[in-house]
């Protein structure tokens, strides 16, 4: 009798535990399956989310650019209307035009040179520091510096007009100019006396001499006519105010 009771205890308790175990296994199975699903779909969701965001931002950017163009067009129309109204505005408009040129807010054209620099194709050796075979922001800056010394009147890098507030900055594998990411090859266009500008880059021990040994490709072209676009972003002065009280 005792033995039968004992067996009943054993069987019933083991059975209860077995049911509990089965429940745990089942729910855990559900949990793990759900976790896997959610991690898989989460990464996918993230990618599509970012892609959507990117295209939205691009569309926004395009729309804003368009708006900027139409508004500057409008401004021009107003100016010409004013000019037609009153000839005394002519002088002001001329002054305005000149100041815009100084500030880089208008596209300019004239004689000049274009300098194309590209990363070295010798970088594949892997023997030396691969960094040395790339075009860096510093290289671009030193070229710009030489061009300015030689009297360049307007400079642009890959169509990004350099103005007094422009920054040329290394940003990982690309170079930021006016907060726009640019990648090699870089085309630096400058308006000025072509011979002077070229000489400024080619003098012995100059910029080109220091870059050539690394295999960085530099191509200088003298042009009779080239156009440099205007600075495309809005300029804001938050801190500075004119101190010219006159």
């Amino acid at each position: 009798m005792e033995s039968v009771k004992k067996k009943l205890y054993a069987t019933s308790s083991v059975t209860v535990l077995c049911i509990l175990l089965g429940l745990m296994i089942g729910v855990q199975y559900n949990t793990v399956r759900l976790q896997k699903q959610s991690t898989d779909s989460a990464s996918l969701q993230r990618v599509s989310e970012l892609t959507t965001k990117l295209s939205t931002l691009q569309a926004e950017n395009d729309a804003l650019q368009e708006k900027l163009e139409t508004q500057s067009q409008q401004m021009k129309e107003f100016e010409s209307a004013l000019m037609a109204d009153d000839s005394s505005f002519e002088a002001l408009t001329e002054e305005n035009e000149r100041l815009k040129m100084v500030a880089g807010m208008t596209a300019v054209q004239g004689r000049g040179i274009s300098v194309t620099i590209n990363d070295s194709s010798a970088s594949a050796d892997g023997s030396a520091n691969p960094e040395a075979f790339l075009v860096h922001a510093e290289d671009i800056l030193s070229i710009i510096n030489e061009l300015n010394v030689a009297g360049a009147e307007a400079i642009a890098i890959n169509g990004q007009r350099l103005i007094s507030q422009s920054a040329v900055r290394c940003a990982g594998s690309v170079v930021n100019v006016n907060d726009v990411k640019l990648a090699a090859p870089f085309v630096i266009t400058a308006i000025g006396d072509p011979d002077l500008l070229e000489a400024a880059l080619l003098f012995p021990g100059g910029v080109v001499d220091t870059l050539r040994p690394w295999g960085i490709e530099i191509l200088i072209k003298k042009l009779d006519m080239l156009e440099i676009p205007s600075y495309s972003q809005p300029r804001e002065f938050r801190e500075a105010t004119s101190s010219n009280k006159g």
Partner: peptide, 27 residues
């Protein structure tokens, strides 16, 4: 007990319950 185990697994899987995240290792 074997039948109990199978019944438990069946009930667990067919139920909509999941353990809260973070308790997986304990379970």
């Amino acid at each position: 007990p074997l039948l109990g185990l199978l019944a438990g697994i069946f009930l667990g899987v067919s139920s909509a319950y999941v353990f809260p995240s973070g308790y997986s290792a304990y379970v």
